[in-house]
Design a protein around this nucleic acid. Structure first.
Lengths: 230, 230
DNA sequence: CGCGAGACTGACCGATCGGTAAGTGGGGCG
DNA sequence: CGCCCCACTTACCGATCGGTCAGTCTCGCG
């Protein structure tokens, strides 16, 4: 789960540009819209669009539902904001993971590991909700951002092909799709309670499967524990 | 729909007492409970637990909501039945796919292909709904059936290991989990509109990745440090 | 001091949700 | 015939949904 920073009355007690600001004992950082975004983000990510009512969001933000509607147009608009925020966050995570040095395997493992650590909820479900509940116009605005993982990772794979780290005959889009399918599947399974081992191990296993497979073909064995490690 | 109240003189006797027995276009299969199961199955699979109201199910089954409740205890019970039905269906598909002759690759491709063809909806979402909405006792009864893919495919993988078709150091449960993760991910993506090619091709690609990977060979032995310490 | 503006409240709207109560028509049966 | 019970009806329940409205409180500003 996202680290809850300043759950306690952070409120900027020391200095308030406006004398009243320290009276803000609402229980969160940021004022108005920011706090709403923050809380709504956590709730939507955790329970999906239908799983969260505006009343619950208002409660979590420490205000009335009517006050919530003062800051927000409607539920879809708020949800769209949240989804955009989440995609931006994921994109930032990926950029960071790809920024460091390393070969393809190291990069992919870092990506998988970071996604495990930072995707607390089922992003796939979120995307499904998005498709169902966000209006067409917003979907379009969202569309270009709906694929940050692809856009960010694809150049890396192309580079890998050029460098001979990947076979030249693979469909990179499909490969990426399968990569993320494995990651999201594991995230979901972890959430559902299956044990399956620590995240680092899962991440390594995913990358191992993606790059090497588990077949006994002509692939040189070695490196124990990569594909399996229970 | 509430508006039906008092709109027509139907309260009197307009629609006729029981001209229905011929009017009742039975869906070909079963009366009462069976037809309910059938329609509810389609609706739940398509839109999930929250996405379907009892009124809609009743309409689809050609009866009143109250009549529906004559046959069904409550929404969760009905949903549980549907989920069980769906799992049984998937299990049957898998059994059939594994029944024919073929080596590991052929079997896995058949499994992937059949799942593509028969899983019209996001089974992952369904499972998520199950976890959220089916009561504890029913969850338990469901638990043993919640993993037919695992139970059915695991022996096949064990046989493959013994036959030298798979590396011996592989965690089979994890491998299965990744396999289904790729499949469900592709199913979802296909539903969301991404092109990606015909099902046969996707199925082959998934199995190819699982068995062979997309790397260019050479697995680095030592992998320089990094976080894989565990 | 008065005043407008921003932030917010409580009360409320119509719709829909899952589920129930009471009544009714008809077929089977003594 | 009389009776019962199955299947099904209309009508309704309380809760909750997303969303609105008129009013109120507190500012900074002139």
């Amino acid at each position: 789960m996202v680290p809850r920073t300043g759950e306690r009355s952070e409120t900027g007690r020391s200095a308030g540009p406006r004398g009243r600001s320290d009276d803000r004992r609402r229980g969160g950082a940021g004022d108005g819209r920011d706090r709403i975004l923050q809380r709504a983000h956590a709730l939507f990510i955790e329970r999906g669009f239908d799983g969260v009512s505006m009343q619950q969001i208002a409660d979590a933000a420490g205000m009335t539902k009517a006050a919530l509607y003062y800051h927000v147009e409607d539920k879809e608009e708020l949800f769209g904001q949240v989804v955009r925020r989440e995609f931006d966050r994921v994109a930032a995570v990926l950029v960071a993971a790809l920024g460091e040095e390393g070969d393809l395997r190291a990069h992919l493992e870092r990506v998988a590991r970071e996604l495990f650590a930072s995707i607390s909820a089922d992003l796939g479900r979120l995307i499904g909700d998005t498709k169902h509940h966000v209006s067409a116009t917003r979907q379009e605005a969202l569309g270009c951002r709906a694929t940050p993982p692809y856009e960010l990772l694809r150049p890396r794979l192309e580079r890998a092909v050029a460098a001979g780290e990947l076979r030249a005959d693979v469909d990179l889009d499909l490969a990426l799709s399968l990569f993320f399918g494995m990651i999201f599947g594991q995230v979901q399974e972890a959430k559902l309670g299956q044990p399956g081992g620590p995240d680092d191990q899962r991440a390594a296993a995913i990358v191992s499967v993606l790059l090497d497979g588990i077949g006994c073909g002509e692939r040189p064995g070695g490196q124990g524990g990569s594909g399996a490690g229970r």
